[in-house]
Design a protein around this nucleic acid. Structure first.
Lengths: 344, 344
DNA sequence: CTGTTAGCGCTTTCAA
DNA sequence: TTGAAAGCGCTAACAG
């Protein structure tokens, strides 16, 4: 017997016919509405079961205009930072029985734009976006005011929407201050692209801590890996460190934009038999799972990633349920803390 | 001015009215169909743009019965193994312009069942499932023969559907054989739950290598962390190793079910000042990114994760496009290789 | 080249 | 408590 790959699904009409009632009665039975004879209901449920009925949610959504779905656009789902934030989103969504359509933009603007369009076409109830770009003009235009959207993980000025991110300036500040306290005289920073607000904030904190102690900050002390593709942070950290070593830069401390970059830096230093933390102290950022497993264990700035995701979902949920846009937008800033381990 | 959170979307009817044509003309213009006057088309496109039209995909899907979407159910998206496999799926899906609805089951059967139901309700074109359970009877029942589904990452007998997984027996075998070659006399294995086919295969390979060399295998040499929740592999590896140490078990080699368990084992051994690989040699499984960063760098069995995901998508795509179910199901087995680093 | 019409599967008035 | 009928937004068959 040849079977269709996707055999026809049973509809409420099929059920109605078999039960000798109208489709409307079936609909009410299956949706636990009042005004239905318990016996009819039971009978209908039995037939639905027998026939293997599975509702067609497109029809429901088309009618009700509610999808109980949000879209989440992340740059790289295999990056532990994002996957841990995602976990928080997922947890909150499960609690509210919401579905998630997750998309990997690879940090590419064209992808983000395309995905947002797709999500709009799917009439998701809201979107969580990890902004990665310099500018969001086209996307702002696409979304207009008609849609709940939350920016997660990075601040983006010039777009009046809710945002949630961590206190980057503080993070950069406490990391650098700690390095100074430990006696570092010449601290380098390896960071991500400049227009990235997270990078920007961390640099500010870095500078603040240094100038506060009367230490000079020179542009060349801030190494920007502008060719970073998502997923290659480790390599970039490695490359930048090797470069500094080759140039015979003097330094006794490195503050890394994130833990992955720090892993790369550590690898490079180890290869050159430079002792951590004795010769060079390293501080990372994010505190991803693996940072307590590498050697030396990484001193880093902890961001509460799961909380960020969890809160982000609840922010969008609130917007969705509110139904009305008020014109006040919230910027939620999460606290960070320094986790002292072995590397600094 | 108070705005609705989700203001009404423009429909093709709106466009039709404004353009003074019928909805069908608009539909054809916007879908690049033939039989349309270029001028009309241009005009319609302009109006659509002005009005900020975004198509409602539910309506399209309801009509066409095609969603260009697949569902992917993973146990834990933050586990690097799954997130790397997912990357391969994502890559292939992008090439074919398919969307993915990804769901985290946390390895819980009830979740899997619920998610599959939801995906069916959403009329996804197919499902990729990482099977985690002893039994799939209810889910088999839910899917019946009507639906393309592929089991990814683990073999599951007793369900005639396409499957893709790696050569677990070979993996267990080469890992263990290598430990023996390196002079290990007493090798332990720390593994996941027994009913898990991956675990089962790796154990078979483990036993095969040992018996081949005339070494005895005792049940107590195989440590089963049956309380593993997804995401806690590291902890489980640590706990089991500590337990062995406390019991004063003799061993000079450990073959770990996966790299995460190996990380935990390494941590435990380091804490007890046991030298790796001098006193105890460790081999992991999967070769996730971080395995070359920890110290000592992990010797492990590499599974081509991205390829697995990529192939998995293409298998389901083929099924979807085939439209017909033939009764021959394919089991695709991916090769594995030993990556020798420092830990063994 | 364009309009009319029917219908995808479901929910929701409104009557009966 | 139930049925008839309209309609969500779009596509496709058919007529013109």
């Amino acid at each position: 017997m040849i079977k269709l790959a996707q055999s026809k699904f049973v509809t409420i009409k099929d059920i109605a016919e078999k039960a000798g009632v109208s489709v409307n009665t079936v609909s009410r039975a299956l949706n636990n509405k009042p005004d239905i004879n318990p016996k009819t209901k039971e009978k209908i449920e039995k037939i639905a079961e027998e026939l293997g009925y599975v509702k067609n949610s497109y029809a429901t959504m088309l009618k009700s205009q509610i999808s109980n779905t949000i879209g989440v656009i992340v740059p790289d789902s295999s990056n532990p930072f994002f996957s841990e934030v995602f976990k928080g989103i997922d947890k909150a969504a499960k609690e509210k029985d919401y579905q998630i359509i997750m998309m990997n933009s690879e940090g590419i603007y064209e992808n983000e734009e395309k995905f947002i369009r797709t999500l709009l076409e799917r009439r998701v109830d809201g979107i969580l976006l990890f902004p990665m770009q310099k500018s969001y003009e086209d996307i702002k235009d696409l979304i207009k005011e008609r849609f709940p959207i939350i920016l997660v993980g990075r601040e983006y000025d010039g777009w009046d929407v809710d945002q949630i991110f961590s206190d980057e300036i503080k993070g950069g500040y406490i990391a650098t201050k700690y390095l100074i306290q430990k006696g570092c005289k010449k601290i380098k920073m390896i960071t991500d692209e400049l227009y990235n607000s997270a990078s920007f904030g961390r640099i500010q904190g870095f500078k603040k801590a240094l100038t506060e102690r009367g230490l000079k900050v020179q542009d060349e002390d801030i190494k920007i890996c502008d060719k970073i593709h998502e997923g290659y942070h480790i390599q970039a950290g490695y490359d930048e460190t090797i470069k500094m070593l080759k140039q015979k830069d003097k330094f006794d401390g490195i503050f890394c934009y994130n833990d992955l970059i720090a892993y790369g830096a550590i690898k490079a230093l180890k290869e050159h038999k430079i002792k951590i933390p004795n010769d060079v102290r390293i501080v990372g950022y994010d505190d991803i799972t693996f940072s307590k497993l590498i050697e030396p264990e990484l001193t880093t700035v902890r961001v509460n990633k799961t909380e960020m995701g969890y809160e982000a979902f609840n922010m969008i949920y609130k917007r969705i349920k509110a139904k009305r846009m008020d014109n006040s937008f919230v910027k939620k800033i999460l606290d960070v803390e320094l986790i002292v381990r072995e590397s600094a």
